[in-house]
């Protein structure tokens, strides 16, 4: 069953002579529970793809359907609400709120909804991420790996339809990278999470079920990985 559908997605920055085509008619679909790696050289358009799927940017043309919902038919605030309930974003630079504790950062999508998450679920995630004894710490008091784990927790908390991760290990050493990747895979298996990871690291890509290779704004290859 397809949970994410991308149809003829196009994004052009600028106008006239200065126009740059970042994405040029990209189409693919992802099934629920699939772990997809998106690879490509820098400037190939993979970050743009992720921002479009995440709904933080609007495309020039094409459609993105998440869990049966065409997200760009939503107005800005409905899209924001849809995002906090259905999409989890993980960035290279963690992007935590420096003034909130680790726990509050993880709960952020719920807090924005004016709700409290199920404490059991929160405990389960904190345990999984190895942050149980760090819940009251501020991001500034955590290491890079711990901060990235907090941002993974923030993406997991609301059981999103899709988790989008943009170079989640790009800022970490190889040891920490491996443990972050293990976590992502674990969540993929344990919670049956759909995972879309953007990376230029081949080792990470090979852990996925499927690799999408992007170049010049188009999909060059779409191949399944043999485990």
């Amino acid at each position: 069953m397809s949970i994410l559908q991308v149809e003829d997605l196009t994004k052009i920055y600028g106008k006239g002579d200065a126009a740059v085509t970042a994405l040029d008619g990209v189409s693919f679909s992802v099934d629920k529970g699939e772990f997809v790696a998106v690879v490509g050289a820098s400037g190939s358009g993979k970050s743009t793809l992720m921002h479009l799927i995440g709904g933080v940017e609007r495309p020039t043309g094409g459609r993105v359907t998440v869990d049966g919902k065409d997200i760009f038919t939503l107005n800005e605030s409905r899209l924001a609400i849809f995002r906090r309930r259905n999409i989890g974003l993980i960035y290279q630079f963690y992007n935590l709120i420096p003034t909130l504790t680790a726990e509050e950062n993880i709960m952020l999508p719920y807090l924005l909804d004016g709700r409290k998450p199920d404490p059991k679920k929160l405990d389960e995630i904190l345990e999984l991420l190895g942050l149980a004894d760090r819940r009251e710490h501020l991001p500034g008091q955590l290491s890079g790996g711990q901060q990235q784990r907090v941002s993974i927790g923030r993406a997991l908390i609301n059981d999103p339809a899709v988790i989008l991760a943009d170079e989640p290990t790009g800022n970490l050493d190889s040891h920490r990278s491996r443990s972050i990747l293990e976590l992502l895979k674990l969540s993929n298996r344990q919670f049956h999470q759909t995972l879309l990871v953007i990376t230029h690291d081949e080792k990470i890509a090979l852990q996925a079920d499927r690799i999408l290779t992007i170049g010049d704004g188009r999909i060059l290859h779409d191949e399944a990985v043999r485990a």
Binding site: E76, S77, A80, R83, R84, L89, L108, L112, D113
Partner: peptide
């Protein structure tokens, strides 16, 4: 500004 961007990307509305 960056903080607002993060908040928006995890689903904060303009009003928030």
């Amino acid at each position: 500004l960056r903080q607002f961007g993060i908040l928006k990307s995890v689903g904060a509305t303009r009003r928030q």
